[in-house]
Design a binder for these strands. Structure first.
Lengths: 197, 197
DNA sequence: GTCTATAAAAGGATAGAC
DNA sequence: GTCTATCCTTTTATAGAC
């Protein structure tokens, strides 16, 4: 793999594992087996590596996240729960240490440069947009006047809040209960769609 | 105010504004108008200041958060929305820069010392417990078999997820839509309680 | 593009007088 | 308990040869 990609990949993992501020440039160099001169050849500074990482998440959402999560699943609403299951799997794999990398960075960086904030928001929007599209596909199973974008944002909230609590308590059951709550929420909306029809 | 309290207060504000890692001991000294020697007289190190801040949040939840938020409000379910409104007010006051201090720290600190993680979890539990108690007070307005603890966790999720998105987009409307969703969720549960009766 | 060495600053923490 | 001065490490970033 080329040097620039090795840097991005190492930084992506380190930011996920330790956060942005707790990761030093030396950490990135050591993990990627790259020398200081090379990193600063590709990136003006550490924050530009972060920009590269966030752009990689943005460009890879389909191939790295959505496609794997939705493989073999047809039902649009079950695709949403498959996406949530993907985060659950990550939590279990890491003993509830690491959750959503974007969410963690979004809360860690309190006054990020506009370009960083913009990329965080874009990553959120792409995720929400993908969920919204599944809710649109669900068609008449959901109330016709339902704001599907807002519901997609609420699904994201359930994921991020579930991850936050599961990580803090080191117990995936907190995530599970939040997923159950959002499942109940969808069930009640479908009930509403039925009775209104 | 005594020196130790000044340090805790300054650190609390700085951790809220910038996060833990982005706050230096020098920042705390400058904000609290305390000298290095005094800080290290009261605290073995920076992390112990964090422990003090988290303990202060824990001990102050009633006086600093719940009592002010619930002043003049009798309805238990409206108390929950008043609590959410408190976070909304904080977002508006800070142009959506700062949200829930505990949530931010919980996601920033990836592998905190056990004592720190324990305090984060305790703060979450106390918050959730307060909301749970209001849901219990709501009695028969909610389904009898409803897991009120799990619902309280879901309310917390809505708050944290709403704060995260509002901050990232610098737009409080993201918070509002999440609150509206949780209000709708409660409304549907109350409907369920009615039809089951 | 890559290498080593190093600068320049910031960081956490300590010493010892008062 | 408080003060100033300072140590030592880490951190980001640069220089300049190859």
């Amino acid at each position: 793999m080329d040097t620039r990609s090795r840097i991005i990949e190492a930084a992506r993992d380190l930011f996920w594992e330790k956060g942005y501020n707790a990761t030093s440039v030396a950490d990135i160099l050591s993990r990627s087996q790259v020398n200081s001169g090379s990193l600063y050849h590709f990136f003006p500074g550490k924050q530009d590596v972060l920009v590269g990482v966030l752009a990689a998440y943005r460009d890879g959402i389909e191939a790295m996240l959505l496609s794997p999560a939705w493989d073999g699943i047809d039902d649009p609403l079950e695709k949403i729960f498959a996406l949530l299951a993907h985060y659950r799997w990550q939590l279990v794999e890491t003993d509830c240490l690491y959750g959503c990398p974007i969410g963690s960075l979004a809360l860690e960086l309190h006054e990020p440069d506009p370009i960083v904030r913009e990329l965080l928001a874009t990553n959120f929007s792409n995720w929400t947009g993908a969920v919204e599209a599944r809710l649109v596909e669900a068609g008449a199973r959901l109330p016709p006047d339902l704001d599907r974008r807002a519901l997609a944002e609420f699904v994201m909230t359930a994921m991020e809040g579930g991850v936050m609590q599961a990580r803090t308590y080191r117990d995936v059951a907190f995530f599970d209960r939040n997923v159950a709550a959002i499942r109940d929420h969808l069930a009640m909306l479908m009930e509403r769609a039925k009775t209104a029809a």
